[in-house]
Write a protein that binds this DNA or RNA. Structure first.
Length: 420
RNA sequence: GGAGGCGUGCCCGAGUGGCCGAAGGGAGCGCACUGCUAAUGCGUUAAGGGGUUAACACCUCUUCCGGGGUUCGAAUCCCCGCGCCUCCGCCA
């Protein structure tokens, strides 16, 4: 949720910020609904003030005067009962309209409507020279026997996979590796609930914007998380944190569930786009003053991990149109896949400023009263896609795959080889 | 799944229909005192919205887990939900 006061006081500034997203639909409707709301609010509040006075007077009135006073107060109360539902309706309309407004892009966000307008900030790491034709991860993975898509599909449908054998060990190694690196840097490991209530989805901005992407358990009114960002953000909902404790940093480890609606036919094979994958996620809560420094920290951690895994990547700054609703700025790290001959988004860092904390009511107490915290999130390791990048980049001519040095303490093996 | 108890401000906790936005304590802040720290004394501090102001101030509404209801009036009474605790059942 954006700050409606800002919209009210300076609609042009909001409009200008939104122009980076290629404009946002429904802004005028929100402004109009807000005006109607405030008009009604004033009406009702004046009546309430009168009613409160009348009703208070009854308590102090002499017994003889009471019947008349009660009659008068009752009339006011009756009138209120007619007006209040109208106010309620107007307010809900305002809220549901405003809930669709995305966050305001930061000034450094490039303008643009689609991913074609994202800006490549830089390339990091050397692409290897292969003296053989590099294979893609599907071919490699199947030959190595580390995952099984076909039986995944048999059991659960397309886009579900079994990790098998050393694939599982590789996954656990990546998770341990990421958790240790982050926990050294002050991020507390968390294994959150995977099923959450609606308020958590709404509070993080996944509802209403991305509702179609989320699995729903209708019987129990719960939703499967698409990222641990959701339960980590909701963890402190309704709380007032001590400013001295900020930043609060978490390393969430969880499976992630995504319906991948609307991506039929895209990345249908292998581990790239699946309905379920495991991920270690960074999540920070901090002050408005520090949030861009924290953003830099999260980005640096992501790069540190990619470099340790010896994966060449490029840094892509998302343009306004490619931001997602809750982010004020988003930066992706895209790995180069020599087999597939393309880049693949491996990690992504977002500063959602106060967009989530306003909905979740997470504040901090500082010298000048309370203020909304800023929340940030960023991938540490998305296991499936990281395996993709490891396979393709570290493959050898004989079909084996070298494990990067940094990961070996966690895997216990230095090479993946096809089963004899 | 069954029975009962509980949910109050930053934290703890009193409050069973009007004098309650809420006693008291802790914590924070300010002042005083004190070589320093600590201790002590006095004062002060809820949040959110709307109006108004150059600003301070001020006016007003809402909020005692959430949602409904009764009433002129609800922290207080009733109903539903959520959470926590205790007991029983079940279970890794």
């Amino acid at each position: 949720m954006i700050d409606l006061r800002l919209l009210r006081e300076d609609p042009d500034a909001v409009r200008a910020a939104y122009s980076k997203r290629g404009g946002v639909k429904g802004l005028d409707e929100v402004i109009a609904a807000d005006a109607v709301y405030r008009e009604r609010l004033k009406e009702v509040e004046e009546l309430r003030a009168e009613q409160n006075r009348a009703s208070k007077a009854i308590g102090n009135a002499a017994p003889d005067d009471r019947p008349a006073a009660i009659a008068e107060a009752k009339e006011l109360s009756d009138r209120l009962k007619e007006l209040e539902p109208v106010l309620e309706e107007v307010q809900q309309k305002l809220e549901s309209l405003a809930a669709h407004l995305p966050n305001l892009p930061h000034s450094s966000v490039p303008e643009g409507a689609s991913e074609d307008d994202n800006v490549i900030e830089r390339e990091v790491g050397e692409r290897r020279d292969f003296d053989f034709e590099p294979k893609d991860h599907v071919e490699l993975g199947e030959a190595l026997g580390i995952f099984d898509s076909e039986r995944g599909a048999k059991t659960s449908g397309s886009r579900f996979v079994y990790l098998t054998g050393n694939g599982v060990l590789l996954e656990l190694a990546l998770v341990r590796f990421a958790l240790e690196r982050l926990s050294e840097r002050g991020f507390k490991p968390m294994a959150p609930p995977l099923l959450v209530r609606e308020h958590a989805m709404y509070g993080t901005g996944f509802f209403p914007a991305d509702e179609f992407e989320i699995y729903r358990l209708e019987r129990d009114d719960l939703y499967l998380i698409g990222t641990s960002e959701v339960p980590l953000a909701a963890y402190h909902s309704g709380e007032v944190l001590d400013a001295a404790d900020l930043p609060v940093r978490y390393a969430g480890f969880s499976p992630c569930f995504r319906r991948e609606a609307g991506s039929y036919g895209k990345d249908t094979k292998g581990l790239i786009r699946v309905h379920q994958f495991d991920k270690v996620e960074q999540f920070s809560l901090t002050t408005a003053e520090d949030s861009w420094d924290e953003f830099a920290t999260i980005r640096a951690n992501e790069e540190m991990i990619l470099q340790a895994l010896e994966i060449p990547y490029r840094v892509a700054v998302m343009c306004g149109g490619d931001l997602g609703s809750s982010a004020a700025k988003k930066v992706d790290h895209e790995a180069w896949l020599p087999g597939a001959q393309r880049y693949l988004e491996l990690t992504s860092a977002s500063n959602t400023t106060d967009y989530q904390s306003r909905r979740l009511k997470i504040r901090h107490r500082g010298k000048e009263g309370t203020a909304l915290v800023h929340t940030l999130n960023g991938t540490a390791v998305a296991v499936g896609r990281t395996i993709v990048a490891l396979l393709e980049n570290h493959q050898q001519a004989d079909g084996s795959v070298d494990i990067p040095e940094a990961l070996r303490p966690y895997t216990g093996f230095s090479k993946l080889t096809p089963p004899a």
